[in-house]
Simulated scan of single mutants.
Amino acid sequence: MTLREVTDGPAVVACNTCRFSADARDDAADVRGGARLVEALRAVQAEPGYDGVAVQEMPCLFACQDFCTVHLRAPGKVGYVLGRFEPSAEAARAILDYALLYAESDAGQVPYRSWPAGVKGHFITRTPPAGFIVE
């Protein structure tokens, strides 16, 4: 394993090797679901208003049962792993809409009433930032 340094700001880190779905590894064109989700995230991020959150990718977030997973992170904020997404533009938009709210928050907590519908039910874990725990 080799680590590569990236920008240390709000980011959605997408698993580019995730399964396409619970039942299929690849789509009809033999492309992994994670790679498709990265494509969708980058397409949405290219639209105006989404430049406040980086889209980064890496192989395997070790959440294989929860296909199409992303890790939402920012310095000094609680991080989240979300999964079970369809690799679609709608899912990408919901993830990035939530990520913008997350980036604006003080510690990474976004009020539930503000969550885009497309992320509800997709949270897998939350992780404390280095040097902190949640009270």
Rank of each mutant, 00 (worst) to 15 (best):
P75N: 05
S21E: 11
G79W: 05
V78R: 09
G9P: 03
G34M: 09
A14R: 02
E135R: 12
D66Y: 03
E135K: 11
A24L: 12
A43G: 11
P75W: 07
T7P: 04
T17V: 06
A46S: 15
D27E: 13
L37T: 02
Q56W: 10
Y98F: 15
T127K: 12
E57V: 13
Y102V: 02
V78A: 09
Q109P: 00
L41C: 14
E90N: 09
F123N: 05
A40P: 08
T127I: 14
Q109Y: 07
F85E: 02
V13R: 11
V70E: 00
Y98P: 00
F85G: 01
L61K: 10
L37R: 01
V38I: 14
R4T: 07
V55G: 00
V13G: 03
P111D: 04
D30M: 14
C68V: 02
Y112T: 05
F123G: 08
G33N: 15
D30G: 15
F123L: 03
G131W: 10
R42V: 04
V55Q: 12
D23Q: 11
A24P: 02
P116F: 09
P10T: 06
T2Q: 07
Y50N: 15
E104S: 10
R126V: 02
V134F: 11
R25V: 11
T69C: 07
A22T: 11
P111Q: 06
D26G: 11
H122G: 01
Q45K: 09
E57A: 15
E135S: 09
I124N: 09
L101N: 08
I133F: 12
N16L: 09
K77N: 04
T69S: 09
T125P: 10
C60P: 04
K120Q: 14
Y50K: 14
F132Q: 13
A74D: 05
R84C: 00
V55N: 11
A29M: 13
V31I: 15
R113P: 00
R113T: 07
K77D: 07
Y112E: 07
A89S: 15
N16R: 11
V44Y: 01
T2W: 04
F20C: 07
V70I: 09
S21L: 07
P75K: 08
M58S: 06
E5I: 05
V31C: 13
A28D: 15
Y50G: 14
L100E: 08
S88L: 12
G34P: 14
F85L: 02
A28N: 13
G52E: 15
A130M: 10
L3T: 07
E47W: 14
Y112M: 05
E47K: 15
V12C: 01
P116K: 11
N16P: 03
G118I: 03
V119I: 15
R4F: 05
R73A: 12
G83T: 01
S21T: 12
E135T: 10
F132C: 11
G9Y: 04
T17Q: 07
K77W: 06
M58W: 02
P111W: 06
S88N: 10
L61P: 05
A117M: 04
Y80F: 11
V55C: 13
V134E: 12
A63P: 00
I124C: 03
D8P: 02
A103K: 08
L82E: 00
V78T: 11
P128R: 12
G131T: 03
Y112G: 05
A103R: 10
V55L: 13
Y80E: 09
V110K: 06
F85T: 00
V31N: 14
I95Q: 00
